[in-house]
Simulated scan of single mutants.
Amino acid sequence: MAIAMRRTKQVEPHEDYGFFGPDSVTWKVWSYPSSLTVGFQRAVVVEELDPALIAAVDKTHDIYKRPRTRYDRTLRYFAMVAFGDSRSTSQVADVLVKIHSKAIGTDEVTGIRYDANDPESQLWIHLTAWHSILKAYEMYGPGKLSAEDEEQYWAECRVAAELQTCDQSDIPRNREELHAYYERMRPQLLGSDIAKQAMHHLLNAKVMLPPAPLLLRPGMLAVNAVLRAATIATMPRWMREMGGLRQSRAVDVAVLPIMKASLWLVQVHPRIELAVLGLLSPATVPVVTPILLGVPPTNPEVVTPAEARERYGYDRPREAHLEWRTKQHQRVFGEGAAPSDAGLVESQEMLGRLG
């Protein structure tokens, strides 16, 4: 179902529809409030099972030092891919390569070198995000997609993959291929102590929310408990066991109607959904507002990532900033020095301040 576009005052329109638009399944799925709650929380929790990713996370400790900022910036990036205009999203995808160039090192658990720009690492992040958003939508939203819509969803997932260093050909075309991917990945995943610690930490919604007034704290504790239970309920048993996450089937069943009803109430009016989003991720609100309020872009055009790169002068992510990435490797592996934060600093204009 297309999202109706209408004129609304005092909302800054996007330059164009970006890479998807109102007829896309991406807009249909990602605009439901399950995406910014359970879906995104599931994505950041599940991805910690990758030893290379958790090694980089543990080295910076950003999820512990500035969890709210990191959550805000990451959600804004994914929202830009789904809803942002082609110029801004191409720019942020390009600078993301520079950000990831500092996430390199040697995993102390496995002894293997890691690089956040590695195509396999990017594929894991990309698929866990897109699958988690879909899983949350189907469990707590309108329900399972039709076969036609699901085929289109994974085709659009391949389009989004062009904005990262992973290969489009590696993107599953359907649910069966997605499950086959997880089976290939399982022997490489690791529920290490640092992974379990990170997963439990990220399941605590308090790390993402602003401090609540004393009178509201009991209510926030209840919301946190429900969100945690709802997120764990979306995860298969093998993931839970690997992450040390225990939850009974009774809780899985009990949380379903609570979450479905809560998200239905949130989506009744877009202003309510935007208010919830404002609590979770203020930086994401300007990206999503024109879409939820039906404000058409200045130029009602859907652009491919390839067309955008040619139009705005960016390289494919896999070939982007090769000289800079080589210098980062030399600093870390050759000189034993810390990598430069230049890409991270540069990103503040696009993704929000670091602290």
Rank of each mutant, 00 (worst) to 15 (best):
R66H: 07
A55R: 07
L49I: 08
Y71K: 06
Y71N: 14
W30N: 04
L53C: 05
R42V: 01
S31T: 13
A43N: 02
S90T: 12
S88D: 15
V45N: 00
A79E: 14
Y77K: 09
L36T: 15
R42E: 01
E47Q: 09
P67E: 09
A55V: 14
Y32W: 08
R87P: 15
A79H: 15
P51L: 13
V46Q: 04
E47I: 06
Y32C: 11
V46R: 09
W30I: 06
R70Q: 10
Q41M: 04
P67F: 13
V29L: 11
T37P: 05
E47A: 07
Y64P: 15
S88W: 13
S86T: 12
Q41S: 09
M80D: 14
L75D: 08
R42C: 06
R73I: 12
A56Y: 11
P33M: 01
H61C: 12
V81Q: 03
P67S: 11
S35Q: 06
D50I: 07
Y71S: 13
S86R: 07
Y64R: 15
I54S: 01
T69W: 04
A52E: 14
Y71D: 07
E48G: 02
Q41R: 04
G39M: 03
R42G: 08
W30S: 04
Q91Y: 15
Y32A: 13
L36C: 08
Y77M: 12
R66D: 06
S88Y: 10
R87Y: 15
Q91P: 12
W30A: 01
P33Y: 00
G39K: 12
T37E: 00
Q41N: 12
T60H: 04
T69A: 12
L75Q: 10
R87H: 15
H61L: 13
L53M: 01
V29G: 03
A55C: 14
A79D: 13
D58R: 11
V81A: 02
A56N: 09
Y64D: 15
S88N: 14
R42K: 07
K65S: 05
S34Q: 06
R73E: 13
S34Y: 03
Y64L: 15
R73L: 14
D58Y: 10
D50W: 00
V38G: 11
T74E: 07
T69D: 09
A82M: 02
A43H: 00
K65A: 10
T60S: 03
H61Y: 07
P67G: 13
A82S: 05
Y77A: 06
S34K: 10
D50P: 06
V46W: 00
S90M: 10
S35R: 08
R66A: 11
Y77H: 09
F83H: 06
P33K: 03
F40H: 04
S31D: 03
V44I: 08
I54T: 05
F83M: 12
Y64I: 15
W30Q: 02
M80L: 09
T37M: 00
G39I: 11
